[in-house]
Amino acid sequence: MNQNVERLYNGIIKENPTFVLMLGMCPTLAVTSSAINGLGMGLSTTVVLVFSNLLISAFRKVIPNGVRMPAFIVIVASLVTVVQFIMQAYTPALSASLGVYIPLIVVNCIILGRAESYASKNTIVPSIFDGIGMGLGFTLGLTCIGLVREILGAGQMFGIQVLSLSWFTPITIFVMAPGAFLVLACLVAVMNIVRERMEAKGKPLAKPSGCMTGDCAGCGHAAVCCGKTTAEALEEAKTK
């Protein structure tokens, strides 16, 4: 298979950041109260991811290894600022409903994770496709979770009433904060079953590498965030 197509397939299906790798859980919980919000958040993250992969891969030989994390953060933060302003100008309603979560794309594990594990080691074109694949995979995950929550919580799909309120009583809690935790918990449980089945078949899924496992090993944020350092630091504290 062509390497670029392989990158797209890898991001959307094989290592889907939401379903398989369980990365970027803060925005996943926060903005999926409706499918539109999930879609908007997913697409804006995709744009940042594609351009950050492009720039980081282009500059990978220029950035000294010692200051690589701060350099990546500056690149990502600049792109996020640009996206934030574009959204404020052209999609003011979406920008208002996503609020503080747009600038918080900066600290999304997926972006620094891909920068660290893929873009900083590969050439420009595959890095762009890696960004598109991962971004679309994330968008797919957020939109699906948003759809489930919107149908259960309001009987709507993308803001259109599909379940008639004459017989359907919306379970409002699903569009509120606790619903996010509940839906995600069920998703994790379902993925646990899928994981076990695939392993029995001899085709194991990629391990979740995000914060959900409690040890973020593999997430590019490990250098600056909790994650791997958490486990190590706590180990160290115990032995003292």
Binding site: I173, M176, A177, P178, G179, A180, F181, L182, L184, A185, C186, V188, A189, V190, N192, I193, M212, T213, G214
Partner: peptide
């Protein structure tokens, strides 16, 4: 705990209940 819910899933369910309480 039922097997699929062991680990992170049950923690998230607990968080959902706490979140309801905080509402």
């Amino acid at each position: 705990i039922p097997k699929p819910f062991q680990g992170t899933a049950i923690v998230l369910i607990t968080a959902a209940l706490m979140s309801i309480a905080f509402m």
